[in-house]
Design a protein around this nucleic acid. Structure first.
Lengths: 343, 343
DNA sequence: AATTAGCACTCAAAAGTGAAGAGTGCTATT
DNA sequence: AATAGCACTCTTCACTTTTGAGTGCTAATT
């Protein structure tokens, strides 16, 4: 019973497109005026009754026009996605591709820039979730002497991200000694994910306590701490265009969104959920993601760097957003990000 | 004519306190019920007329109670500040001081933690502005070889903050060569502020082009870029409790606040303005800071690290916030921050 | 002279009323 | 099968009425 004949499809799309453009319930007469379907308003009404029976549109009240349901939007978006895959989304505007040329920036800055572009372009809220610790590969550990008993520990990851922290030492060590310790640790841990490093350091420590010098054991423990604090702490989700929220969200929704984004647990869960399927995804009525966000939608895509550490970037806006334009934009942006971070 | 006799003071404070607690216009009868002033509502009305003439309170309309004006709030807050200076704000809750023990955290994390504490404690929006580039002192420059033609440049500042960036090099250099270059630059720039370094590098470059090797000149130019990008980029203002906004701000105000905070220029200006006077400051009706934020207030305090690089931390809430509780809280937090960052 | 009780008055907010208009569903017609 | 015609429904908007809180003034009281 969910099949739609050509006429129903056309009328459904006309309703949704009109609703996106004008944000009002759409009546049968309205459709006859805006589209040349060669049908009278009465015929359109008949079709509308059927579309309503099938659950694609609904009626706020007797004398109102029709509004698309979530099911209606999903149909519309699926139709779009199929189309877009064919056309390859190549006609993304020059403006966008010009903005997405990142030169000489940190990785985190690149992601910030991409999010900012998305928010400017969509006038909605852009969010970016950085890669999970579990998938970050360690490239190099380095200790820099800083004061008598203080050193800066630097953990560089394969994708160029850097964690650093000032650590305190029991004794006074020379830079040479610190280098030696770093070399030792590099030899053992290079190429592992941070999570693996964290686990391995614990095992290693027992082994080393007897064989190696105290310094290495101390430094290893400190590195472990750094990785831990990184994992625990809010993974610094990137937000851009928060001030746009007031243009499309209610007070209640703004609160829900801001609360969710401040909640690192939630963001991690979301990222996990996203990683299950690739490419650009659309959540219509994000209540499966954030409860109580019925009239909002999310267009989001995962991005990767060379070594498959994946984050996500996308936008949150009203369900009646311009998917036709914005799905390719998010898609293109995520791909541009992947390209830069891998190169 | 601005002098207030004892009765007027008492009634003004009663009005303000009631308005803070109940958020409604306060009538004369209301005051007689909530406070034992030994006066009838008629007498209170008479005093109210005088307070209104003096501009401390106002009348939304004929049949409404009185609401404090900005002038009224300022009087009230000044009275509080005098009181609090005497009592020294020592009775800040144990809960707060327990939360403000920061152990083993990065400086930026410490500031984040403090902001979070403020937002949790006040249920308003907490903001923190990190120290200005102009006042950050350079402690050490270090280059770490990263790939064939890539190195990580690390700029450590006197207060322990670290900027880093991956830089690309024309030729292949050994770690030793990089160390040599770093030593040279350290000798020249250590102890200067980043702004000074930025300026000096330009002069130095001409000088060095002839005398020194190419590597040093290149690296110096790159350092300059790092400092520039740091200055230009949003100084990563710390926000906490954004979701509280919906509880006290209107849509319009939320938009204004979020826009202001996303605007780095604005935040710098604000920080400059704050630095002019020390200690905890209260802006009643922050329209001198953010236009169109009439009914909001800001309690904010500057903090410092050892070498006088100053940032600011505070809260934004409704003008009718509980100053009695929150002024000491902000004050205490900023002082705790100063203590940690200086130690 | 200061305070207070009494009371008419004002005005915002809430509740009620009626007309207008948009859009429907049904039916008879083409 | 498609459509014109029409009665019907229900929101929206402008308008009026009612209510009640709180005032300002005046006359009485201490």
């Amino acid at each position: 019973m969910d099949a739609l004949d050509e006429r129903r499809k056309k009328i459904l799309c006309a309703i949704i497109q009109s609703h996106i453009d004008f944000n009002i319930p759409i009546g049968s007469f309205f459709i006859t005026q805006k589209f040349s379907l060669g049908l009278s308003s009465a015929s359109i009404r008949n079709t509308m009754v059927k579309l309503e029976e099938q659950g694609y549109i609904m009626h706020p009240h007797t004398s109102a026009g029709r509004v698309p349901t979530e099911k209606g939007y999903r149909f519309y978006i699926n139709a779009l996605l199929e189309e877009k895959i064919l056309s390859g989304g190549t006609e993304v505007s020059q403006e966008l591709s010009a903005r997405l040329i990142f030169t000489g920036k940190d990785n985190i800055r690149v992601v910030e820039e991409a999010a900012k572009t998305l928010s400017l372009y969509s006038h909605y809220l852009a969010i970016a979730i950085p890669p999970k610790t579990e998938s970050i590969l360690l490239k190099r550990i380095k200790f820099i002497k800083y004061e008598e008993r203080k050193a800066l520990a630097v953990l560089i990851s394969e994708d160029g991200a850097v964690n650093n922290k000032i650590i305190e030492l029991d004794k006074i060590y020379s830079q040479k000694q610190l280098d030696k310790a770093a070399n030792y640790l590099n030899a053992r841990f290079k190429g592992l994910t941070l999570t693996e490093v964290r686990g391995k350091i614990t095992d290693q420590l027992y082994e080393d306590k007897t064989t190696c010098d105290q310094l290495i054991a101390d430094l290893a423990a400190l590195c472990r701490e750094i990785i831990f604090s990184e994992t625990d702490d809010l993974a610094l989700n990137v937000l851009s265009g928060a001030s746009n929220l007031t243009d499309f969200a209610t007070m209640r929704q703004i609160k829900e969104i801001l609360t969710a984004i401040e909640d690192k647990q939630f963001m991690l869960k979301l990222l996990n959920q996203l990683s299950n399927s690739l490419g650009t995804q659309v959540f219509v009525g994000v209540e499966n993601v954030i409860p109580a966000l019925k009239e909002l939608s999310m267009v989001i895509s995962t991005y990767n760097n060379r070594k498959y550490a994946g984050g996500a970037i996308g936008i949150i806006g009203p369900t009646r957003m311009n998917y036709k334009k914005l799905i390719p934009v998010v898609d293109y942006t995520a791909k541009a990000l992947t390209k830069v971070l891998s190169g």
